[in-house]
């Protein structure tokens, strides 16, 4: 048993482990577990909010209370506190974003699923692109193109420092913002999956190596469980951070002056 396992353990874990094979033979190569998980996440979100809010009661039922708590949390702590009172109109989008990212991230620790679509750069990149277009569109709509550019590129500083500041502001606002937004979420999910792989597969590798190292594999698997809890924290944190940053970029685009 153990010798047959040794041959099967792919060690060390690599980037290849993220590219899963198609679900069934003969289907399109893009139709993988990742694709199915994105559809499932979208379906769960739509059905959950439709069902919980079908007949809203004045005294909420349990499910309605959960949905209202999530919406209320994003609306109050993110939309209202960060953007201001006129920011409440962004609460529906921010809530959807928060729930979607949270659910997609959550797949990385659900037993038997254990991979998040967000560990592929494509999905965070699209979400970051939506945020990028959103805050630029709002800024241009609010101030007009010239004033928006002036607001976001020219900080109140002495004229002789501006040749340095303007390129820095341009890079940080228009290049690094969408890039870091996407890469932050992607890298967290990627690194999280990689760490879990290292400790799970490492346990098998040690179990199969020498009698002296075999008992240590238990320690490795205990580490996997501990790191899953750490991963759970990272998941919620990253969903929150993505939403908060989107809100803060919108706030920056709508603000009058620096």
């Amino acid at each position: 048993m153990s010798t047959s396992l040794a041959a099967e353990v792919p060690w060390p874990p690599s980037v290849e482990d993220f590219f899963l094979p198609p679900i069934a033979e003969g289907t399109d190569p893009w139709f993988t577990k990742i694709t199915v998980l994105v559809w499932v996440a979208v379906a769960i979100l739509i059905i959950f909010f439709l069902v919980t809010y079908r007949e809203p009661k004045l005294v909420p039922t349990k499910r309605q209370w959960i949905a209202e708590s999530i919406y209320g949390f994003v609306r109050n702590t993110v939309a209202r506190d960060l953007i201001g009172h006129h920011g409440i109109r962004f609460a529906p989008y921010l809530t959807t974003l928060f729930c979607f990212v949270l659910l997609m991230n959550l797949f990385s620790i659900v037993p038997l699923i254990q991979i998040s679509p967000n560990s592929h750069i494509a999905f965070p990149a699209i979400l970051a692109l939506i945020s990028y277009v959103l805050f630029n569109y709002l800024g241009i709509k609010q101030h007009g193109f010239r004033k928006y550019m002036k607001n976001s590129l020219v900080p109140p500083a002495p004229w002789f420092i501006l040749p340095i500041l303007i390129p820095i502001e341009f890079m940080s606002t228009f290049l690094f913002r969408p890039f870091t937004l996407a890469v932050r979420l992607f890298a967290n999910m990627f690194a999280g999956h990689m760490i879990l792989l290292v400790f799970t597969l490492g346990g098998f590798v040690m179990l199969n190596s020498t009698p002296l190292l075999a008992p240590v594999s238990v320690l490795s698997w205990l580490m996997t469980i501990a790191l899953t809890f750490l991963e759970a924290m990272v998941i919620v944190l990253q969903a929150y951070v993505f939403t908060v940053l989107t809100a803060s970029y919108v706030q920056g685009a709508l603000a009058e002056e620096h």
């Binding site: 980037v15 960060l82 870091t180 690194a191 951070v241 908060v244 803060s248």
Partner: peptide, 23 residues
Amino acid sequence: QPFVWIGFAVVEALALLGVAFGF
């Protein structure tokens, strides 16, 4: 608190760029 998380996320981005570029 929101500014803590924003600052944390911005600083942490540097470490995560290291993960991405490492690969």
